[in-house]
Write a protein that binds this DNA or RNA. Sequence first.
DNA 1: CAAACAATGAAAAAACTTCTCATTATTATT
DNA 2: AATAATAATGAGAAGTTTTTTCATTGTTTG
Lengths: 137, 137
Amino acid sequence: MGKIDLKKLGLKVTLPRLKVLAILERNQREHLSAEDIYKALLESGEDVGLATVYRVLTQFEQADILNRHHFAEGHSVFELNQGEHHDHILCVKCGEVDEFTDEVIEARQDAIAKEMGFEITHHSLYLYGICSACQKK
Amino acid sequence: MGKIDLKKLGLKVTLPRLKVLAILERNQREHLSAEDIYKALLESGEDVGLATVYRVLTQFEQADILNRHHFAEGHSVFELNQGEHHDHILCVKCGEVDEFTDEVIEARQDAIAKEMGFEITHHSLYLYGICSACQKK
DNA sequence: CAAACAATGAAAAAACTTCTCATTATTATT
DNA sequence: AATAATAATGAGAAGTTTTTTCATTGTTTG
Protein backbone atom coordinates (compact mmCIF):
# COMPACT_ATOMS: atom_id res chain seq x y z
CA MET A 1 0.00 0.00 0.00
CA GLY A 2 1.35 3.41 -0.96
CA LYS A 3 2.57 5.47 1.93
CA ILE A 4 0.75 8.69 2.55
CA ASP A 5 2.81 11.73 1.62
CA LEU A 6 1.80 14.58 3.89
CA LYS A 7 4.05 17.05 2.14
CA LYS A 8 2.34 16.49 -1.20
CA LEU A 9 -0.96 17.19 0.48
CA GLY A 10 0.24 20.58 1.65
CA LEU A 11 0.66 19.47 5.24
CA LYS A 12 3.90 19.92 7.09
CA VAL A 13 5.43 16.73 8.31
CA THR A 14 5.13 16.92 12.07
CA LEU A 15 5.37 14.38 14.83
CA PRO A 16 1.72 14.61 15.89
CA ARG A 17 0.55 14.01 12.33
CA LEU A 18 2.81 11.02 11.88
CA LYS A 19 1.78 9.58 15.21
CA VAL A 20 -1.93 9.91 14.51
CA LEU A 21 -1.40 8.34 11.13
CA ALA A 22 0.45 5.45 12.74
CA ILE A 23 -2.40 4.82 15.17
CA LEU A 24 -4.89 4.80 12.33
CA GLU A 25 -2.77 2.42 10.28
CA ARG A 26 -2.39 0.10 13.24
CA ASN A 27 -6.18 -0.03 13.66
CA GLN A 28 -7.46 -0.21 10.13
CA ARG A 29 -10.36 -2.46 11.04
CA GLU A 30 -11.55 -0.23 13.86
CA HIS A 31 -13.54 2.96 13.90
CA LEU A 32 -11.76 5.22 16.32
CA SER A 33 -12.97 8.38 18.00
CA ALA A 34 -10.72 11.37 18.63
CA GLU A 35 -10.65 10.33 22.26
CA ASP A 36 -9.63 6.77 21.34
CA ILE A 37 -6.72 8.09 19.32
CA TYR A 38 -5.70 10.50 22.06
CA LYS A 39 -5.69 7.70 24.63
CA ALA A 40 -3.71 5.43 22.33
CA LEU A 41 -1.13 8.18 21.97
CA LEU A 42 -0.87 8.64 25.72
CA GLU A 43 -0.44 4.90 26.19
CA SER A 44 2.40 4.95 23.69
CA GLY A 45 4.01 7.65 25.78
CA GLU A 46 3.45 10.31 23.16
CA ASP A 47 2.86 13.86 24.32
CA VAL A 48 0.16 15.08 21.96
CA GLY A 49 -2.67 17.35 22.98
CA LEU A 50 -6.29 16.47 22.42
CA ALA A 51 -6.86 19.69 20.51
CA THR A 52 -4.12 18.70 18.12
CA VAL A 53 -5.73 15.31 17.57
CA TYR A 54 -8.95 17.03 16.59
CA ARG A 55 -7.12 19.45 14.32
CA VAL A 56 -5.15 16.73 12.63
CA LEU A 57 -8.21 14.57 12.08
CA THR A 58 -10.08 17.45 10.47
CA GLN A 59 -7.12 18.15 8.19
CA PHE A 60 -6.82 14.50 7.24
CA GLU A 61 -10.50 14.42 6.46
CA GLN A 62 -10.15 17.44 4.18
CA ALA A 63 -7.14 15.82 2.52
CA ASP A 64 -9.27 12.73 1.98
CA ILE A 65 -6.84 10.60 3.98
CA LEU A 66 -9.64 9.39 6.17
CA ASN A 67 -13.40 9.23 6.49
CA ARG A 68 -15.45 10.63 9.31
CA HIS A 69 -18.60 8.81 10.35
CA HIS A 70 -21.49 9.92 12.49
CA PHE A 71 -22.90 6.76 13.94
CA ALA A 72 -25.82 7.13 16.34
CA GLU A 73 -23.45 7.69 19.24
CA GLY A 74 -23.01 11.41 19.54
CA HIS A 75 -19.40 11.59 18.47
CA SER A 76 -17.45 11.18 15.26
CA VAL A 77 -15.38 8.12 14.44
CA PHE A 78 -12.67 7.85 11.85
CA GLU A 79 -11.13 5.25 9.59
CA LEU A 80 -8.39 5.43 7.00
CA ASN A 81 -9.61 5.87 3.46
CA GLN A 82 -8.71 2.48 2.05
CA GLY A 83 -9.43 3.19 -1.56
CA GLU A 84 -12.59 1.13 -2.09
CA HIS A 85 -15.66 2.70 -0.61
CA HIS A 86 -17.83 0.70 1.75
CA ASP A 87 -20.88 1.13 3.91
CA HIS A 88 -21.56 0.02 7.47
CA ILE A 89 -23.88 -2.22 9.39
CA LEU A 90 -23.93 -1.82 13.16
CA CYS A 91 -25.27 -3.91 16.01
CA VAL A 92 -27.38 -1.79 18.34
CA LYS A 93 -26.73 -4.19 21.22
CA CYS A 94 -22.99 -4.89 21.21
CA GLY A 95 -21.83 -2.08 18.98
CA GLU A 96 -20.11 -4.34 16.47
CA VAL A 97 -19.45 -2.66 13.15
CA ASP A 98 -19.26 -4.61 9.91
CA GLU A 99 -18.69 -3.35 6.42
CA PHE A 100 -20.22 -4.11 3.07
CA THR A 101 -20.48 -2.77 -0.44
CA ASP A 102 -23.29 -3.19 -2.88
CA GLU A 103 -23.11 -2.23 -6.52
CA VAL A 104 -26.86 -2.08 -6.91
CA ILE A 105 -27.23 0.44 -4.11
CA GLU A 106 -24.31 2.51 -5.36
CA ALA A 107 -25.80 2.67 -8.82
CA ARG A 108 -29.25 3.60 -7.55
CA GLN A 109 -27.81 6.38 -5.41
CA ASP A 110 -26.10 7.93 -8.39
CA ALA A 111 -29.26 7.64 -10.46
CA ILE A 112 -31.38 9.24 -7.74
CA ALA A 113 -28.98 12.13 -7.27
CA LYS A 114 -28.98 12.72 -11.01
CA GLU A 115 -32.78 12.63 -11.17
CA MET A 116 -32.94 15.23 -8.42
CA GLY A 117 -30.37 17.48 -10.07
CA PHE A 118 -27.67 16.90 -7.49
CA GLU A 119 -23.98 16.57 -8.17
CA ILE A 120 -23.25 13.93 -5.58
CA THR A 121 -20.10 14.35 -3.48
CA HIS A 122 -20.45 11.52 -1.01
CA HIS A 123 -22.99 9.55 0.92
CA SER A 124 -23.43 7.71 4.16
CA LEU A 125 -25.43 4.56 4.61
CA TYR A 126 -25.73 2.90 7.98
CA LEU A 127 -27.83 -0.16 8.67
CA TYR A 128 -28.69 -0.74 12.32
CA GLY A 129 -29.84 -4.07 13.69
CA ILE A 130 -29.09 -6.96 15.97
CA CYS A 131 -26.15 -9.12 14.97
CA SER A 132 -26.38 -12.90 14.91
CA ALA A 133 -24.42 -13.27 18.14
CA CYS A 134 -26.72 -10.91 20.03
CA GLN A 135 -29.85 -12.60 18.66
CA LYS A 136 -28.87 -15.78 20.49
CA LYS A 137 -28.51 -14.10 23.86
CA MET B 1 -54.14 12.79 8.97
CA GLY B 2 -54.92 11.02 12.21
CA LYS B 3 -54.24 13.09 15.30
CA ILE B 4 -51.56 11.78 17.57
CA ASP B 5 -52.98 10.43 20.81
CA LEU B 6 -50.38 10.93 23.52
CA LYS B 7 -52.48 9.15 26.10
CA LYS B 8 -52.59 5.97 24.08
CA LEU B 9 -48.83 6.09 23.87
CA GLY B 10 -48.51 6.14 27.63
CA LEU B 11 -47.61 9.82 27.74
CA LYS B 12 -49.50 12.27 29.86
CA VAL B 13 -51.09 15.09 27.95
CA THR B 14 -49.13 18.14 28.98
CA LEU B 15 -48.78 21.61 27.56
CA PRO B 16 -45.09 21.25 26.63
CA ARG B 17 -45.78 18.06 24.71
CA LEU B 18 -48.70 19.55 22.83
CA LYS B 19 -46.71 22.67 22.02
CA VAL B 20 -43.72 20.75 20.70
CA LEU B 21 -46.05 18.61 18.64
CA ALA B 22 -47.69 21.73 17.22
CA ILE B 23 -44.31 23.15 16.19
CA LEU B 24 -43.39 19.91 14.47
CA GLU B 25 -46.73 19.75 12.67
CA ARG B 26 -46.37 23.34 11.55
CA ASN B 27 -42.94 22.52 10.05
CA GLN B 28 -43.45 19.13 8.49
CA ARG B 29 -41.11 19.85 5.61
CA GLU B 30 -38.31 21.05 7.85
CA HIS B 31 -35.77 19.22 9.90
CA LEU B 32 -35.64 20.99 13.22
CA SER B 33 -33.06 20.83 15.96
CA ALA B 34 -33.96 20.91 19.63
CA GLU B 35 -32.72 24.48 19.69
CA ASP B 36 -34.89 25.40 16.70
CA ILE B 37 -37.94 24.07 18.49
CA TYR B 38 -37.01 25.80 21.70
CA LYS B 39 -36.62 29.13 19.91
CA ALA B 40 -39.91 28.66 18.08
CA LEU B 41 -41.60 28.11 21.43
CA LEU B 42 -40.06 31.24 22.90
CA GLU B 43 -41.18 33.26 19.90
CA SER B 44 -44.72 32.00 20.41
CA GLY B 45 -44.51 33.25 23.96
CA GLU B 46 -44.51 29.76 25.42
CA ASP B 47 -42.60 29.18 28.61
CA VAL B 48 -40.99 25.81 28.02
CA GLY B 49 -37.52 24.89 29.21
CA LEU B 50 -34.85 23.59 26.86
CA ALA B 51 -34.38 20.50 29.00
CA THR B 52 -38.04 19.70 28.56
CA VAL B 53 -37.75 20.06 24.81
CA TYR B 54 -34.93 17.51 24.81
CA ARG B 55 -36.90 15.18 27.08
CA VAL B 56 -40.04 15.41 25.00
CA LEU B 57 -38.16 14.81 21.78
CA THR B 58 -36.53 11.70 23.17
CA GLN B 59 -39.90 10.40 24.36
CA PHE B 60 -41.49 11.11 21.00
CA GLU B 61 -38.67 9.30 19.31
CA GLN B 62 -39.21 6.25 21.52
CA ALA B 63 -42.93 6.41 20.85
CA ASP B 64 -42.13 6.47 17.13
CA ILE B 65 -43.89 9.79 16.71
CA LEU B 66 -40.82 11.28 15.11
CA ASN B 67 -37.47 10.40 13.61
CA ARG B 68 -34.12 11.64 14.77
CA HIS B 69 -31.42 12.24 12.17
CA HIS B 70 -27.71 12.77 12.51
CA PHE B 71 -26.73 14.84 9.55
CA ALA B 72 -23.09 15.89 9.25
CA GLU B 73 -23.68 18.83 11.54
CA GLY B 74 -22.95 17.68 15.04
CA HIS B 75 -26.47 17.88 16.38
CA SER B 76 -29.68 15.91 15.99
CA VAL B 77 -32.58 17.08 13.88
CA PHE B 78 -36.14 15.81 14.04
CA GLU B 79 -39.11 15.37 11.78
CA LEU B 80 -42.55 13.91 12.34
CA ASN B 81 -42.92 10.31 11.35
CA GLN B 82 -45.19 10.65 8.37
CA GLY B 83 -45.96 7.02 7.87
CA GLU B 84 -43.97 6.26 4.74
CA HIS B 85 -40.25 5.97 5.28
CA HIS B 86 -37.94 8.15 3.23
CA ASP B 87 -34.28 8.95 2.87
CA HIS B 88 -32.53 12.28 2.49
CA ILE B 89 -30.36 14.13 0.03
CA LEU B 90 -28.62 17.26 1.30
CA CYS B 91 -26.88 20.14 -0.41
CA VAL B 92 -23.47 20.74 1.14
CA LYS B 93 -23.52 24.38 0.00
CA CYS B 94 -26.92 25.75 0.94
CA GLY B 95 -28.06 23.06 3.35
CA GLU B 96 -31.24 22.25 1.46
CA VAL B 97 -32.71 18.90 2.40
CA ASP B 98 -34.79 16.85 -0.03
CA GLU B 99 -36.39 13.50 0.46
CA PHE B 100 -36.71 10.40 -1.64
CA THR B 101 -37.58 6.73 -1.42
CA ASP B 102 -36.29 3.91 -3.54
CA GLU B 103 -37.71 0.41 -3.48
CA VAL B 104 -34.59 -1.10 -5.00
CA ILE B 105 -32.36 0.30 -2.28
CA GLU B 106 -34.78 -0.74 0.45
CA ALA B 107 -34.89 -4.28 -0.86
CA ARG B 108 -31.11 -4.54 -1.17
CA GLN B 109 -30.65 -3.27 2.37
CA ASP B 110 -32.89 -5.99 3.72
CA ALA B 111 -31.11 -8.62 1.65
CA ILE B 112 -27.68 -7.47 2.82
CA ALA B 113 -28.70 -7.46 6.46
CA LYS B 114 -30.07 -10.97 6.07
CA GLU B 115 -26.89 -12.18 4.38
CA MET B 116 -24.85 -10.79 7.24
CA GLY B 117 -27.04 -12.37 9.89
CA PHE B 118 -28.49 -9.10 11.13
CA GLU B 119 -32.05 -8.51 12.21
CA ILE B 120 -32.40 -5.01 10.85
CA THR B 121 -34.11 -2.42 13.04
CA HIS B 122 -33.63 0.73 11.01
CA HIS B 123 -31.24 2.45 8.69
CA SER B 124 -30.06 5.87 7.69
CA LEU B 125 -29.06 6.89 4.20
CA TYR B 126 -27.90 10.38 3.42
CA LEU B 127 -26.68 11.54 0.02
CA TYR B 128 -24.58 14.69 0.05
CA GLY B 129 -23.99 16.81 -3.00
CA ILE B 130 -24.51 20.14 -4.67
CA CYS B 131 -28.08 20.96 -5.59
CA SER B 132 -29.00 22.28 -9.02
CA ALA B 133 -29.44 25.84 -7.76
CA CYS B 134 -25.97 25.92 -6.20
CA GLN B 135 -24.35 24.41 -9.27
CA LYS B 136 -25.34 27.53 -11.23
CA LYS B 137 -23.73 29.93 -8.77
C1' DC C 1 21.18 28.68 9.07
C1' DA C 2 17.85 32.26 9.38
C1' DA C 3 13.53 34.17 8.46
C1' DA C 4 8.76 33.26 7.61
C1' DC C 5 5.16 31.06 8.91
C1' DA C 6 2.55 27.10 10.30
C1' DA C 7 1.72 23.76 14.07
C1' DT C 8 1.46 22.76 18.85
C1' DG C 9 -0.13 22.25 23.88
C1' DA C 10 -2.83 23.96 27.49
C1' DA C 11 -6.57 25.98 28.96
C1' DA C 12 -10.69 28.35 28.17
C1' DA C 13 -14.76 28.44 25.77
C1' DA C 14 -18.40 26.92 22.85
C1' DA C 15 -21.94 23.75 21.46
C1' DC C 16 -24.99 20.17 22.47
C1' DT C 17 -27.25 17.18 25.68
C1' DT C 18 -28.40 15.06 30.11
C1' DC C 19 -29.12 15.15 35.01
C1' DT C 20 -30.73 16.85 39.63
C1' DC C 21 -34.11 18.41 42.47
C1' DA C 22 -37.64 21.16 44.32
C1' DT C 23 -42.10 22.49 42.49
C1' DT C 24 -46.17 21.88 39.68
C1' DA C 25 -49.44 19.42 36.82
C1' DT C 26 -51.94 15.30 35.33
C1' DT C 27 -54.48 11.30 36.12
C1' DA C 28 -57.20 7.68 38.25
C1' DT C 29 -59.99 7.25 41.94
C1' DT C 30 -63.10 8.90 45.18
C1' DA D 1 -65.24 18.14 42.19
C1' DA D 2 -61.57 16.89 45.46
C1' DT D 3 -57.77 13.85 46.57
C1' DA D 4 -53.85 11.02 46.48
C1' DA D 5 -50.35 9.03 43.72
C1' DT D 6 -47.27 9.85 40.53
C1' DA D 7 -45.20 11.76 36.54
C1' DA D 8 -43.62 16.06 34.26
C1' DT D 9 -41.56 20.48 34.53
C1' DG D 10 -38.14 24.54 34.76
C1' DA D 11 -33.83 26.17 36.12
C1' DG D 12 -29.48 25.50 36.61
C1' DA D 13 -25.62 22.53 37.16
C1' DA D 14 -22.97 19.25 35.04
C1' DG D 15 -21.39 16.09 31.44
C1' DT D 16 -19.64 15.40 26.54
C1' DT D 17 -17.65 16.49 22.49
C1' DT D 18 -15.37 19.82 19.80
C1' DT D 19 -13.33 24.36 18.70
C1' DT D 20 -10.79 28.49 19.74
C1' DT D 21 -7.18 31.38 21.70
C1' DC D 22 -2.62 32.47 22.34
C1' DA D 23 2.03 32.14 23.65
C1' DT D 24 5.60 28.93 22.35
C1' DT D 25 7.83 25.62 19.42
C1' DG D 26 8.77 23.36 15.09
C1' DT D 27 9.15 22.98 9.98
C1' DT D 28 10.36 24.60 5.66
C1' DT D 29 12.27 27.37 2.06
C1' DG D 30 15.80 29.85 0.19
